[in-house]
Simulated scan of single mutants.
Amino acid sequence: MGERLMVVVGFEAAELLDIACVTTGLAMANQLGTPDRPYRVSLAAPGGAPIVCGTGLTLHTQQSLERLTGPLDTLIVSGGVGFERAAADDRLVGHVRRLARESRRIASVCTGAAVLAAAGLLDGRRATTHWRFAARLAARYPKVTVDPAPIYIRQGNVYTAAGITSALDLTLAFIEEDHGPELARQVARDLVTYLQRPGNQAQMSLHTAAPAPDSGVVAKVVRHVLAHPADDLGTARLAALAGVTPRHLNRLFTEHLGQAPGRYVRQARTEAAAQLLAATDLPVAAVAARCGFGTTESLRTAFTGRYGISPARYRATQQRRPTGG
């Protein structure tokens, strides 16, 4: 059957991690699994020139994009701060479009989605990119349905990943598809990462999605909510804690966090439950109680709404087992 030729496309000011997560993950699969169809990983760029990454480090390439021909197993376009220039480069986009026709699987990482979109490869498809650039991608390419939430999305043979380290999740998904879940787990363990995050897991959490509130009142309430998810966190109780009226607290939360206190509390409790599910063996009922959910069913409803999967399924994909010692 031969090797699986996996080509990563880079460009000036590409993101180093977008590239390295893919190349390292695939190389480790070869080392750990000795699959009957090993990966042959190649980095391509216009003219075969070295890539000066956005970090300032330089990567040497193995292929000239212009001279590269298929068939390819997988074509993966990296992202990076230079994505707008790359997406506006007709020659680069044209070669990506040409190679996509000769590839079994097509993918982008982070803002590399803009290159796929410019090539028309995302027209009529749902796709994701880094949450910071999702609105820009949607405005520029109205034929693409941009969803900024998931870590990665598969639509047929086209995959788009959210950004930077989500390239590792995408790579693990490729390894599992190609060689089965056990090799993907081995690679994840050696990389000291999640066994595999579900593709529809949200990109951001409460701890990273928004800057610290400018309002002292909101900051105080947020700290209390995150530290005490099992407490009475009704809006009236939180307003009393902060020394303001419920109406004023609603206004402050909407102004500084873009959501009402009740919605924020629900999200905080769901994320607290996710952490306990991944890090402990507590029964789901105990997790629900510790995180302020009255019943396991209310936890399941909130969890499915947030992550798209049940608490039990989330635990199965997230939990790291002790390795002894």
Results as ranks from 00 to 15, higher is better:
79 G>N: 09
60 H>A: 14
59 L>T: 07
90 D>L: 10
62 Q>P: 05
88 A>L: 04
113 A>L: 05
85 R>N: 10
99 L>M: 06
108 S>N: 02
113 A>D: 05
81 V>W: 14
73 D>F: 14
67 R>E: 15
109 V>A: 00
113 A>E: 10
107 A>K: 05
64 S>P: 02
122 L>T: 13
82 G>T: 02
113 A>I: 10
95 H>T: 00
117 A>I: 14
78 S>F: 01
92 L>H: 10
102 E>H: 06
93 V>K: 08
92 L>I: 01
114 A>T: 02
80 G>S: 08
107 A>W: 05
124 G>N: 13
79 G>F: 12
63 Q>T: 00
104 R>W: 09
111 T>G: 01
64 S>H: 09
105 R>G: 00
78 S>I: 00
61 T>P: 08
114 A>Y: 15
117 A>H: 08
113 A>C: 09
94 G>V: 04
121 L>H: 09
96 V>C: 06
95 H>C: 04
120 G>S: 14
98 R>V: 03
82 G>H: 08
105 R>C: 10
91 R>N: 08
104 R>D: 15
124 G>R: 14
115 V>L: 12
121 L>V: 11
70 G>T: 12
78 S>C: 09
80 G>W: 06
108 S>L: 03
110 C>I: 07
100 A>N: 02
89 D>A: 05
63 Q>R: 15
75 L>K: 06
67 R>V: 00
91 R>K: 07
110 C>H: 05
64 S>L: 03
110 C>G: 08
106 I>C: 01
122 L>P: 15
93 V>I: 03
66 E>F: 11
76 I>E: 00
88 A>K: 04
72 L>E: 08
119 A>F: 13
107 A>Y: 06
74 T>N: 02
124 G>I: 13
105 R>L: 15
98 R>S: 09
67 R>A: 13
67 R>W: 09
108 S>Q: 02
87 A>V: 07
67 R>T: 04
95 H>V: 00
104 R>K: 11
99 L>G: 02
76 I>C: 12
94 G>T: 05
95 H>W: 07
64 S>N: 05
101 R>C: 01
80 G>Y: 06
125 R>Q: 15
77 V>L: 03
105 R>K: 11
65 L>C: 06
71 P>M: 11
